[in-house]
Amino acid sequence: MLQKREMKMNRIHQQKIKEKAYCKMKKAFLLFFVTFMMGQPIVWAQSDEKEGNNAFAMYAKTADFKQLENARKFSDNAYKERRDSSAYKNNLLRALVYSSLAVADSNRSLKYSKDPIDEAKFALSKLNDEQLNYENEAQITYIHRKLGNAHLILGRRALNNNKYEEAYNHLKQVDTLSRGDIQVNRNLAVLASQLEKNDEAIHYYNAYLESKDNASAEDILIMADLYNKTGNQNERLNVLLSGSDSYPDNKDILFQIINIYAGNGSYDAVVPLIEHAIRLEPENVELNYLAGYAYEVTGNRKQAEQYYKTTLDLDDNNYNANFELGLLYLRDFVSDTANMEKKDLAEKHLLKANEIDPNSVNALQSLAVLFDKSGDTIQYERVSNQLNQNTFN
């Protein structure tokens, strides 16, 4: 009986031990639950970042704007606390979401406290961990591309509204974000030129040309015009000469080179180019006259006479060709006053020049020399009187 009683007492004792253990376990569970609930905001912040990434992944896959809105909601929730806004993952998600909104919601149909472009740029500026940036290079490239597209959209709108300065500033942002996109550089060059920012236009056009295998003839002419606007004639000429090597039959390039040389009085440089130019445009009156004058200055009288005659065949009333041809014959006559054929030719062309421009002092003075040397007193006095009238008028 005693043994049975002891066994019963042991069972009761064991039962009490189990009950105490259960109570301890229950208290521990309750303590864990309370601790879990107290830590709930931190866990929810992590969940928002994850949910935001899931929603953004669905948007990237489906282009469903609602998924982007969801991603924005989760991103905003994950960005409320100060410590949340410094977390790399939160900033990466925010930059992804808002750079996408900057394009997808280009009309700003949703409400924002700050423009999506500014939100995305701020978040992007917080991505300072080089190792994490390397690991997330594809996402960061995506953010840059979206921000570039967002500025491009705004730039086009500004351009359509003739807001060139605003369009230019947006395109400069595109250039920074796209890291020297070739077409962006060209557009910047065009806009800068339109805004008379010629030095900047040259900078961007040079960057554009450096990105191309071959500059087009149009590129050469634009670049030459930009240098002309800045007064840098040496660079203008260098660009044109380089372009002429690539496009020897481009009339616009060739004619500009010839005009520069002629403007500088470098007729020895005009001569090697002028006949090729005339072959490209044989009925060009100005080119034929210039050829005659260049040959005359460089001492080739025969070629000069021929090109002056050709000029007059194309335009009998060309003052310059008549005057210069008359001078050629006048010099011949002065050196040989017995050569009446030269006297008659000189008189013919100088009188024609005087007829075309009665107030031209050069033609009148040349006629005075002619009539004085030929002994034609009446004509000499007439021309002298006209010269005196022109002088006092």
Rank of each mutant, 00 (worst) to 15 (best):
K4R: 08
G155F: 00
L124I: 00
P272A: 05
E135Q: 11
N318Y: 07
E286M: 05
V34I: 14
L241T: 08
G231P: 13
V174R: 01
K16Y: 13
F323K: 09
Y142D: 10
I278F: 09
A71Q: 08
K24N: 10
N160F: 14
I143K: 02
E196A: 12
A87M: 11
R236D: 08
Q139D: 12
N53C: 08
A60E: 13
S75G: 05
I117Q: 01
E119Y: 14
A138T: 15
N322F: 06
N133K: 02
A353V: 03
V184E: 00
N77T: 10
Y319W: 04
C23F: 13
I378N: 11
H170G: 02
I12A: 14
L328W: 08
A63Q: 12
A45I: 00
K80H: 11
D115K: 03
K50Y: 14
E81T: 09
K352C: 06
Y293M: 05
Y247L: 07
L327Q: 14
L240C: 02
L237R: 09
A95P: 01
D268K: 14
Y289T: 03
K18L: 05
N259K: 15
T298K: 08
F33D: 04
V34E: 05
E355T: 11
K66I: 13
K18M: 10
R5G: 12
S125C: 06
F333Q: 03
L101K: 03
K27Y: 13
Q139K: 06
E324S: 14
N359C: 08
T230G: 00
D249H: 09
S100Y: 09
F74G: 00
E281Y: 13
S374V: 04
E51F: 11
P248F: 07
L237K: 11
D313V: 15
V97A: 06
D357V: 11
G231M: 09
H13D: 10
K373P: 09
E283N: 10
N214G: 00
D376Y: 02
R108I: 15
F65D: 13
L330R: 04
Y79S: 13
L314K: 15
I260S: 09
A192C: 02
T311E: 07
N238M: 08
E137C: 02
T176W: 01
D181T: 05
